[in-house]
Design a protein around this nucleic acid. Sequence first.
DNA 1: AAGCTCTGCTTTTTT
DNA 2: AGCAGAGCTT
Length: 632
Amino acid sequence: MCLELNDEQRVAVEHNGGHVLVLAGAGTGKTRTIIARAAYLIRTGVEPNRILAMTFTRRAARELTDRLGKIVGPASLGVIAGTFHHFCLFTMRRMPKRFGIESASVIDRDDQTQLMKLARGPFVAPKEQFPKASELVNVYSYARNTNRPVREHLNKHTDYDADTIEKMCQVFAAYEERKRKNAYLDYDDILFRFAKVLHENQEVRRVLITLYDHILVDEMQDTNPLQWLILDGLRDPAKLFCVGDDAQSIYAFRGADFQNVHSFTQRVPGSVVLKLQQNYRSKQEILNVANWLLKQSPLEYDKELRAHRGKGIKPRLIEFESDLDEANWIAEDLIRRHEEGAGWRDHMILTRTAWGSRALEASLIEKRIPYEFIGGMGLLQAAHVKDLLALIRSAASQRDELAWARYLTLWPKIGDKTAERLIAGMSVLPRLEDVLAHLRSALPKRLDIVRGPEIVRKHWEEPPMAIAESAKFISPLMEEYYERWEARRKDFDLLVRIAERHKSLPEFLETYTLDPISTTTALHLDVEDKVALITVHSAKGTEAKVCYLIRVEPGQYPHVRSLGDRDEEEEDRRVLYVAMTRAKDELIITRSNSYASMPVFWGGAMAAHSYGGTAYFLQDLPDSLVEKEVLG
DNA sequence: AAGCTCTGCTTTTTT
DNA sequence: AGCAGAGCTT
């Protein structure tokens, strides 16, 4: 079997020689081109495991492998496909000494914030004005992803005064010291450590550059300087094949730098830039609205998408009284379409924020529509699940300060101080047995506390069992202080089911810190036909026949938090553009006046000015481009 | 030192 | 409206 390609695509796919950047507008067959490239390389004799494919999410990697498998068969499994984070960690785990990560465990954003809170404590007086831990994590992470010294980033790109900056740097030093002591790797360390060793250790580099002949990169416009350093270090003799679209750059908040696209030819000598311009996804009426949106921007995107599929249905713009009406109408519209024979899976609902889809989720649940929430709050972020995982982690490592603190303070009469004292005494002990012995002698009357890690250890080789048994063990502790306990308890069953797919507990934990799984995803793991409810950021690269863009209203597009900042407003415009261009046949844009009845702080923020004077992107949308309706 | 109660502040997007 | 942190009580 073979993919059909147009001339532009074929030129890219069969390019022979140097490095390539493919500029590909929305729907022009980016994924298809990458897959066809991999298939072409394999067919011309390249070993599959000498092809490295960097995708933006794990989902995209899975899709790539699946679709490639349909063309080249089992050879597709040899291709190394994953996110930058997966690839770097996977590689470092294979030579842990070289990278100095022998006993390291990966921590997620929540743990990072907790650790930052601990680091911040000693430097800040009780009611002192000083950035919160989460703010500190944001700043710190941004600086690292742009590969700048934190101090320089703070001086140049923030308004903090000199004293604050000085103190922030001290907090960051304390944070790094804690990270080192606990052998933690945060998300940024994964990329940073890899990039550093790659560029500083010639011996390692020599090994790594012999591993691959071709590096395929998807969503190039959303790579950040740190990721660029990684690509730069891995190329030659390996050839880069990067695909991207500057109009779809929506990750600047994470340090993404579309210079990686604009200055590609300067940075990579001998490279060529190719273009894909024909849109195969959407009907022209949908593209007309997307094209209009980009043209409103003062930036020159130089994009005019033309539909290969021709004319179709005009997009609808529907206005409701409230977000509840909006949610109900969409749920009923989905049911109607399903009754008329459409599959649930043909529908995608796009939301700017996870929080903005609450009303809709309630409607979907109430009307029993099978759906999956992609993006947003993960199963593993729920407090009670984190409690359980803390127990598992504490049995895995006596150095895991955050896990032990969380587990110990679950018990009555044990608060921060007691936990801290206990942990100080045990972090130096070499083995878990010594730690448990230490706990037994420190708390002779509380032997039940020690039983938790013992239970985990007993079932160490069978992850589902370990989780089921530890859930049984700690449930009585949590029952009392969690509301709606019965509902929460069900998450533990989900966790057991997910664990069935994993061989070891550490592998289980690492998989889901790197690739968070949402509750609805876990719940409908084997349901094939379901509606996708998805944040626009997670929807990059995906498509559906019918797309609903919900809450397209002032305060969301652009988001209130972006108002007044030119770059952020423009990024939000691209977010809306990405959302619109997901639709193949029908685009339904909905909004309501619910923002008008927002709490005061929200309303206050709404009064902020847009840099361009228009605080709502669809303000001047011509009547001719959409069917406008008012319902409810 | 733990745990409760009240106040005030928050809500973008993700590996 | 829901949660984190401050401050007060046990």
